[in-house]
Structures are given as C-alpha cells and as structure tokens.
Nucleic acid binder design. Structure first.
Lengths: 148, 148
DNA sequence: CCGGATCCGTTTCGATACTG
DNA sequence: CAGTATCGAAACGGATCCGG
C-alpha cells in the first residue's frame, strides 16, 4: 500500500490519541476562551455565547486538567473562587486555534466582510508567527500578573 | 470587558460554527485518511486503525458531504463502488491537520524518537508552507488521475 | 464482495433545578 | 461562585443483516 511508505501518513495516524480533547467541541471552546478571552472562572466560561451546560463544563474542565492542558487553583484571597489557568500544553494549542479561526472565517463568515474578520485574518496570514507569539506572550503576562 | 474590544476574540467566537465537523473525532479521522492516505472507498475507511463503526462512518461521510467538504460519486466502471473525494473545503483543512499532527507528536509521541516522527516534524516546522503545498498538490494529482 | 441499514443495550448529552 | 442532581432525549458502537 502507498500509505505504508508514506512518512506523513505514518506520523499522522496518532492524531487519534489527542482527539478526546482536540476533537471535542466543548474543550476547544474552553481553550479558546482561555487563550483569547483570558477567562479563568467557572462562571466566565458559562457566559460564553455557546451556552455550555454546567455539567459539560465541569466535566471538560476536569478532563483538561487530567490531560495536563490546564491547572486548577483555589483562590487565596477570594476563597470561594477557583482559577483555571493554561499550562504550556494548553497554550500550545494556539496554532491549531488559529487554523480553526482561519478556516471558519473563510467558509462561514467571509460574507461579513473585513470589518468583522479582515484585520485579524490578514494579520494571521501575513505574520502568522508573530501573531501567535503575541497572543502567547499576552497570556503569559496575564497569568503572571494575576493575583489569586 | 477586555474581550469586547479584542478583535481576535470577536472573530474567534464563530469557531463554534465549524465545530460540528472540525470538533468531531470521526470526521477528523476521515479527513486525515483522505488527505494523507488518499482513501476514497467505504471499506478503506473502515480499515483504519481506529476501527470506526460502519454506522458512524456512513453518518459522518454524509455530514461531510452535506457540509461541502467532500463529494460522493458512484463508480462508472466498477458500478458497485462509491467514491468519496475531497472538495476544496475539505482539502483546506490540511493546515489544521498539520497542527494536529505537530501537537500530537510533541505531546504523545515524542519519546518514539526521530525515526518515527522526526523527519516530517522538522519538514513541517522548517518549511511548513511548502509541505502543505506538496501534500495538497499530491491530492489534486491523485484526484485528477483517478479513473472512476 | 461492497456499501451500507437496522437493531439494541449502554453511554453521553443537555436543559433545568438545586445546593454548600 | 462553583459546582451536583436528576431525567428524558439523543448519540454511540458492536453485531448483524441485507440488497445489488
């Protein structure tokens, strides 16, 4: 078979391993909210436009924690708060998020015009590496400055 | 709120629209098999290591067809065959696949060493654009040469 | 043989309600 | 604020069956 000798196919096969997180709607939306929205609290995630049911939310947050994408920290000042923060593994889904954004804006939102999607699209296309680095640095800053 | 003025967040929100395909394990695996394995027949997909149940397979093939990612063509020479082929929309999930591969090899298969993942990883990182173009061209060639 | 459809027990979803 | 409890509806997935 052709694919037996195809290095690309051989090393692609294992994508299945990560798909219980990266092939799931809710975990992707949570990661999006953390990376781009700097969300960190249970109720912040619940406010997202997609209206994740609280059961799904707690389930997926635990999954993300168990898989090492995020960490959970109980508030020290505000003892009733629980902070969910991205680990490296979680933040490194950013390039994938960018592709998700590019694909979605192209095939589902192109008609909305540049006022809605244009700026970030051209930014991502013309200077993808820098765009990713900036968003990533932003999150690292946010995390460092955050007083729990 | 910070995110209200964040163009990245505003245009990222709509990723949800595409997640019924791109946030689903089986559709992603089918797209992988088509893009990298040049699979095209029902039974070829069934042979994948992840063992997709035939019910899921037919369901997801129909979803991919309905969303415009692939087309379905009945065989003309071999009348009992049904060919599933990528449309542009399907092939353009390739950059996303590449990120999925990079992430998965990094976090789940790095210990396997370069013999398994190294070649394609460095290739993707150092010459990502060219790698994508090559895989894409390969599929276009395959599709053009295919006698149905 | 190929491309599914059908059946059926099990799991998951998701909406609403409720609680420490 | 950060979750559980509940419950009917939907989806899953393994096995089998079926028409061409």
């Amino acid at each position: 078979m052709e694919e037996e000798n195809n290095i690309a196919f051989r090393s692609l096969c294992p994508i299945a391993t990560g798909l219980d997180v990266l092939g799931d709607k809710w975990t992707l939306l949570i990661l999006r909210d953390m990376i781009f929205g700097h969300k960190k609290l249970f109720n912040e995630f619940k406010e997202s436009p997609e209206k994740v049911p609280s059961k799904m939310l707690s389930n997926r947050l635990r999954k993300l924690e168990n898989r090492g994408f995020i960490t959970r920290a109980k508030g020290k000042i505000n003892k009733k708060s629980v902070y969910y923060l991205l680990e490296d593994k979680g933040l490194e889904t950013l390039p994938l998020m960018v592709e998700l954004m590019l694909f979605t804006t192209k095939y589902y939102y192109d008609h909305l015009g540049d006022t809605y999607t244009g700026d970030v699209k051209t930014k991502m296309k013309t200077d993808r590496a820098n765009y990713i680095k900036n968003i990533s640095t932003n999150y690292a800053q946010f995390k460092k400055m955050l007083v729990i």
